[in-house]
């Protein structure tokens, strides 16, 4: 079974660099790439009744929009003869990426660097830090 590399993708420039980096690695090892795009969501947030009613509709729209952003990336990777698929999920970014890594038995996780200062990461937390601490497999943070 070929190895799987997971790339956490959030449409930023850093995420694009992470994809490129992972593709370069995958060409050498013959690994497949799985692009994971997570829409930040908490089942414990508060919504107004109006938002409650529209939620299903919004979710469909959000998923469509996300797919429109992620699909071109998948095409780009495939064009370079690397096997690639994508997953779009709701939830907490680091948790979801770790879950998928475990489910698929992935070999490595790649994420882009956000370039936040140490201070803002301290205060607001960062996906990269949470991933490094919780990930079941090796994590590469691409600058």
């Amino acid at each position: 079974m070929p190895k799987t590399y997971i790339v956490g993708y959030d449409t930023s420039a850093g995420a694009d660099r992470a994809v490129e980096f992972a593709v370069a690695q995958a060409k050498g090892t013959g690994a497949a790439i799985k692009i994971v795009h997570v829409l930040e969501w908490s089942a414990y947030s508060f919504l107004t009744p109006q938002e409650l009613e529209e939620r299903h509709q919004r979710r469909t729209e959000e998923l469509d929009r996300a797919a429109a952003q992620v699909n071109p990336v998948v095409e780009r990777v495939r064009a370079q003869d690397v096997e690639c698929e994508s997953v779009i999920k709701y939830g907490h970014v680091a948790d979801i990426i770790c879950d998928i890594a475990e489910e698929t038995g992935a070999a490595q996780i790649f994420v882009g660097r956000t370039g936040h200062s140490a201070l803002s990461s301290r205060v607001f937390g960062s996906v990269q830090l949470s991933l490094v601490q919780a990930s079941p497999v090796a994590v590469t943070v691409v600058p």
């Binding site: 919504l47 009744p49 409650l52 709701y90 939830g91």
Partner: peptide
């Protein structure tokens, strides 16, 4: 009992919280 694949939809907690705030 919530299917993780339904994440992003209105959860039971959210419906309860909204009804309670009313």
């Amino acid at each position: 009992y919530s299917d993780p694949n339904d994440a992003g939809e209105v959860s039971h907690f959210q419906a309860l919280a909204t009804a309670l705030s009313g």
